[in-house]
Amino acid sequence: MSALTGLMAFAGMAALALRMAPHRRAALEPHVQRRCSRLSMTIGGLVLLSGAFALAVRAYGWSMGALVWFSSWSVGGLAVTLLLTYRPRWLPGLSIASVVGAAVWMLLVLS
């Protein structure tokens, strides 16, 4: 379950990074930049991070859930930073993949 939280938090941090101008320029093609507004990135990021929080608390209770949650976005944020530094173009693909992965996992595990 912490891995699932981790995937969602990574995608959430990626979305929050992609609302910042320099990172948008580095990671997104110009036509994609126009399509993904900064507002939608902000909302998407916050939704993903709160989703991760809800999952973690549901699975582990309040105190341990909070620990799992902030650990997830700490490590996820580090991954986003390193990707933006060395492979910025991989970031959108990887974050979409982790959202899809998380969704499939949830359907399989929580159904």
Partner: peptide
């Protein structure tokens, strides 16, 4: 109490 994933995350934060 940490399972493998959380343990690795804590380890990563320790390295940070």
């Amino acid at each position: 109490f940490a399972g493998p994933v959380l343990r690795w995350m804590l380890f990563a934060m320790g390295l940070m």
